[in-house]
Design a protein around this nucleic acid. Sequence first.
DNA 1: ACCTGAACACCGTTCAAGT
DNA 2: ACCTGAACACCGTTCAAGT
Lengths: 223, 223
Amino acid sequence: MTLTRDQVEDTALAILTRFGLADLSMRRLARELDVQVGALYWHVKSKQELLVGVAARLLSGLDGPDGLADLAGPAGPDDAGPPGPPAPQDAPPAGGRRADPRDPAAGRAAVAGLATGIRSALVNVPDSAEVVQVAQSLQPDALKPLNRLRSLLESAGIAHPAWAQHLVMNHVLGSIAAAQEAARLAAVDPTASAAPLGEDAFEWGLQVILDGLFGTGPAAARP
Amino acid sequence: MTLTRDQVEDTALAILTRFGLADLSMRRLARELDVQVGALYWHVKSKQELLVGVAARLLSGLDGPDGLADLAGPAGPDDAGPPGPPAPQDAPPAGGRRADPRDPAAGRAAVAGLATGIRSALVNVPDSAEVVQVAQSLQPDALKPLNRLRSLLESAGIAHPAWAQHLVMNHVLGSIAAAQEAARLAAVDPTASAAPLGEDAFEWGLQVILDGLFGTGPAAARP
DNA sequence: ACCTGAACACCGTTCAAGT
DNA sequence: ACCTGAACACCGTTCAAGT
């Protein structure tokens, strides 16, 4: 059986999920696949290009039109915390549905649902936020869910959809990275544990952003 | 003359400023200082600890009580774009002053001024956002300006100052990283240039966040 | 106290040569 | 077409030994 690009990306995702980005080296990947390092470079142009593929796989559950289709993500159930639907005031009415221009709340709910779905897909995979961030800056159109986020914002009437997309994504990825780093620190040194910065901090910040984006009053009139 | 920790951090900052994080290796640093690599480890415990020091230096102009004291940052003038005061509706009234509880607008202006100051201090130093991010997660209290940002938010009556601090910082650092990555990409491949994502995108996003945090209406009543 | 010299265990990428 | 073997030019960290 000959090596495949899919196999390479699958194994890369597996190493990332189990051991994190520090252990995801081309050499480690080759060892896991029982080939020489050079063989990998027949299937991928560079490690960066490989990471773009891994990022796409991380978010592949959100490729379709339904932002909540695979809410738990490929890595299993969501992180610890009180169970129940996230974003109670937003998620139930709509996941990733097209925003109805006659119903402004639907646009906000769709954005909230997709943002929460992206977080759920990444939060259990170590360093996944970093991987998505490099993919996002390296090949801005390679990640469909991020394009979908932008078009949701555009449909909802946001003035600068691309800017808003980055605003939301910086919060999503920043929250995940902070939470994972805090967890890593706590695992080594259990004494230094300031604030957990978990799912509730994420939801709170998301609502602040959505208030600013969709808020009645002066916010809606901003250029 | 014997080596000093200050010298090590100074030279590290110089390499970062001129060549970026990829070129800031312990070996390169030792070469620049005309010592062996091992010598560095007498003065710093690890590269991560060194980066915390570099991050502190990057933001040292904002240590004092005035958030706009060193608005241009250590790297020279701000990035390209139409000149003029940033955040016209926020910066003029107050830089980093204590928020007057009787004047809610002063709190918002102080936060905006400090956030803009942090951006100005970092935007011209390549990969500075990444450096600050690792410092922030590694030693959350080592960077005074970030603590000051939190206390400004607290004084302004924000419900969750620590969460809000991260919300603002994720936007500041995310915007800088995206802008610098886009510039790096454009330098290599001038054809692929989606949206610039520069200072105006930063200001717009900052105002959205501040609208959500300070906004009149439902936003102010959020827990 | 402060630094050298040298090692340990790694990296990403390239490329002639094999099959 | 696909892979091996081997090299190139690097990493961060440690530590006996020198001064």
